[in-house]
C-alpha cells in the first residue's frame, strides 16, 4: 500500500516540479544572455493567472476543441507518472513500459494536432502539419535509442533498464553513449526547443508548437502549457535517470526517498542549465533542416544498436 502512496506522491511531484524546471531554464538562459529574467517561480504565477481568467472559444470550434486540453494533459501526466523519478520499482511502472510511454505521448500529440486544426485557421493547420512531420521522424530515432537500452537490459520496462544499469555498475558502453545522443536530439525536437522550434517565439511563420495553441485561452491554455512543461520534465527525467540512475531510491525508506529527490533535482538542474546554454549558443534552423537533424538522431540510435550487437555482446 505504501508503494501505491509513494507512486501517487511521485505523480503529483511531476506535476508540481514541471513549472519549476521551466522557470529554472528560463532564468539561466536570461542570465546567460545578460538579462535579469523573470523570477524562478514565474511559471506558477502564469498558470494561476491563466486558470482564473475567462476562457474564450472561437465560434467555429467543435466540442473536440474543448475536450482536447484535458486529454493532452492527462495523457502526458500519465506518461510522466510511470517514469521512476525518485524511487524505482513503484507499482505504476508496471502500467506502462517505454513503448507505452511513447504511445501515451503520441496520444497527447494526436489531440494537440487535432485541436490545432479544429478552429479552421491557417496557423493551426500549419502547426499540426509540421508537428506531425517532426514527430514522424523523431519516433523511429527515439525507439531505436530505446531498443538499444532494452536489448542491453533484456527488458522494455524502465525499472528493468535502470536496475540493469545499477547492477552492472559503470561500464564504458559505446551503445549508451550513442543512445544518449539520440535521446537528447529527440528530446530537443519533441519538446519544441531550439534548434527545432523556439518555445518563446510568436513570429507566426516559424511557430510549430505555439501555432497549434494560438486559439487557446484561459484554463485550456494553462492545461496545454502545463502539459508541454511536464513533457520537458519527462524527457529530462528519462535522460538523467536512465543514463545516470545513481541516487534513485531502491528501498522505500524516508532517507532513501529524500536522497532520491535531492539527486534527481540536482541532476535536472544541471541538465536544465545545459539546455539553457545550448539554446543560447545555437540558432533555430529552417524547418527543412530538421529532417537532417533527426536523421542524425536516427543514425546515433542505429549506431547504438549496432555497437551493442557488434562490440558489446560478442558471441
Amino acid at each position: 500500500m505504501s508503494a501505491w502512496f509513494i507512486a501517487l506522491l511521485q505523480a503529483l511531484l511531476c506535476v508540481a516540479l514541471a513549472p519549476l524546471l521551466v522557470g529554472w531554464v528560463r532564468r539561466v538562459k536570461a542570465r546567460l544572455q545578460n538579462r535579469r529574467g523573470a523570477p524562478l517561480l514565474q511559471p506558477y504565477a502564469d498558470l494561476h493567472k491563466l486558470m482564473i481568467k475567462e476562457t474564450r472559444v472561437a465560434h467555429t470550434a467543435s466540442p473536440l476543441f474543448r475536450v482536447a486540453p484535458y486529454i493532452v494533459f492527462v495523457a502526458i501526466w500519465l506518461a510522466c507518472a510511470t517514469v521512476p523519478l525518485i524511487a524505482l520499482d513503484l507499482p505504476t511502472a508496471g502500467i506502462a513500459d517505454i513503448i507505452v510511454l511513447v504511445g501515451l505521448l503520441a496520444l497527447g500529440r494526436f489531440f494537440l494536432a487535432l485541436a490545432g486544426m479544429d478552429v479552421g485557421t491557417a496557423f493551426g493547420g500549419m502547426g499540426a502539419s509540421r508537428e506531425m512531420l517532426i514527430s514522424a521522424l523523431a519516433e523511429p530515432a527515439l525507439l531505436m535509442a530505446v531498443f538499444t537500452l532494452a536489448m542491453t537490459a533484456h527488458s522494455t520496462s524502465l525499472v528493468g533498464v535502470m536496475e540493469h544499469h545499477l547492477t552492472d555498475g559503470f561500464l564504458l558502453r559505446p551503445s549508451y553513449l550513442f543512445a544518449f545522443g539520440a535521446l537528447v536530439l529527440v528530446a530537443l525536437a519533441e519538446c519544441g526547443r531550439i534548434p527545432v522550434d523556439n518555445p518563446s517565439t510568436h513570429l507566426e511563420l516559424t511557430m510549430v508548437h505555439e501555432a497549434m495553441l494560438l486559439e487557446y485561452t484561459g484554463r485550456h491554455l494553462a492545461l496545454m502549457e502545463w502539459a508541454a512543461w511536464i513533457k520537458l520534465l519527462l524527457y529530462g527525467v528519462l535522460i538523467v535517470n536512465v543514463f545516470l540512475p545513481w541516487g534513485i531510491a531502491t528501498v522505500f525508506t524516508p532517507a532513501a526517498l529524500a536522497l532520491g529527490l535531492i539527486a534527481v533535482v540536482v541532476k535536472l538542474a544541471l541538465l536544465g542549465a545545459a539546455l539553457a546554454l545550448g539554446e543560447t549558443l545555437m540558432a533555430k534552423m529552417r524547418l527543412f533542416r530538421v529532417p537532417g537533424f533527426l536523421n542524425l538522431a536516427l543514425l546515433l540510435g542505429l549506431l547504438g544498436l549496432l555497437s551493442h550487437v557488434i562490440l558489446e555482446v560478442g558471441a
Binding site: T60, S62, L64, A106, R109, F110, A113, L114, G116, M117, D118, V119, G120, G125, A128, S129, M132, L133, S135, A136, L137, A138, E139, P140, L142, L143, M144
Partner: peptide, 22 residues
C-alpha cells in the same frame, strides 16, 4: 515505428480536414 508515426500523421490529416475546421 516510423510507419506508426506516419499513420498518426495520416489520420490527423484525415480527421482534421474532414471532420474539424470549416
Amino acid at each position: 515505428a516510423l510507419t506508426g508515426a506516419l499513420v498518426a500523421a495520416t489520420f490527423v490529416k484525415v480527421y482534421g480536414i474532414a471532420f474539424l475546421g470549416q
